[in-house]
């Protein structure tokens, strides 16, 4: 079992519902300070978005963040360099599109991520059917491959995806791209479908924009992912202190 899953299972054992904020690396020069602030605010793990030119699964907020990051010259290499110099104290999970890894070669890519201390990867356009080479490259490392499930996922696919995912299973609450959905939607049914076939930790994302929604989703899941709502505040000029406050508000809502 990958160390990410060991850590996240232990977190669940301890009675904590995980809070996982998402940041777009390079969207602002001080992005890594925002990540550190989120850890202070109570994040249990952090998703690090690596910008791609054509983010098919992302709505306008993450698109804008990716455009800014790319304009600032952000690359997979630069993100890994910055991360390897930072001691953030929680598991780091990379989120990006498959072409960035495919283009560099999978062994080189997983090597870069490992060297930066990244322990998981979410690649939303990599289907389980096409994932064999990627998972083979990860097998030589401690990088967990996290698969998404959605309200449209069929029973047969829930079983395969829940069995294959490592670390946690990412349950999309809505049929939507990031940042466009309001509310938990079908999250409870999606989580139940995963639980029916596996005891892997199951986290809810896509559709969580308020602390209230996080509180509600925490009642039936093992973790909450918040992305666009947080990234939007940073694009609008939030400071690391604001980010810490944002995250601690979610922390309290989840723990209540």
């Amino acid at each position: 079992m990958k160390s990410l899953e060991v850590a996240l299972r232990a977190l669940r054992e301890s009675g904590t519902t995980a809070l996982v904020p998402y940041f777009m690396a390079g969207a602002t020069p001080d992005w890594i300070q925002h990540v550190a602030a989120a850890v202070h605010g109570g994040a249990n793990a952090v998703e690090i978005g690596i910008p791609f030119s054509d983010p098919m699964m992302d709505g306008p907020v993450i698109q804008r963040a990716a455009e800014r990051a790319l304009a600032a010259g952000t690359t997979l290499e630069s993100v890994c360099t910055e991360l390897s110099g930072a001691d953030l104290g929680v598991p780091l999970i990379a989120m990006t599109y498959y072409n960035l890894f495919h283009h560099r070669g999978l062994v080189r890519s997983t090597g870069l991520l490992s060297g930066a201390g990244v322990r998981g990867a979410i690649v939303p356009d990599l289907t389980i059917e096409e994932s064999q080479e990627w998972r083979e490259a990860c097998a030589a490392t401690d990088i967990a491959t996290i698969f998404l499930v959605a309200p449209s996922t069929t029973a047969e696919r829930f079983a395969r995806l829940a069995a294959a995912t490592e670390g946690f299973c990412y349950a999309s609450a809505r049929m939507a791209v990031t940042g466009r959905a309001e509310g938990g939607g079908d999250a409870q049914a999606v989580v139940a479908s995963v639980r029916a076939t596996s005891d892997v930790p199951t986290y809810v994302g896509i559709g969580i924009t308020t602390a209230r929604q996080a509180h509600d989703a925490a009642r039936f899941s093992d973790g909450i992912i918040v992305g666009s709502a947080l990234v939007e505040t940073i694009l609008n000029g939030a400071t690391p202190a604001d980010t810490e406050e944002f995250v601690s508000k979610f922390r309290h809502a989840i723990d209540q």
């Binding site: 098919m56 699964m57 498959y98 939303p124 356009d125 990599l126 289907t127 059917e129 096409e130 698969f147 998404l148 499930v149 959605a150 309200p151 449209s152 996922t153 069929t154 696919r157 995806l161 999309s172 049929m175």
Partner: peptide, 20 residues
């Protein structure tokens, strides 16, 4: 069967679109 033409093709889409 998986939609490959030699080394090319396949399916690289979000899980939400796979059933469709």
């Amino acid at each position: 069967p998986a939609g490959h033409f030699g080394d090319f093709g396949g399916r690289f889409v979000p899980e939400a679109l796979m059933p469709a």
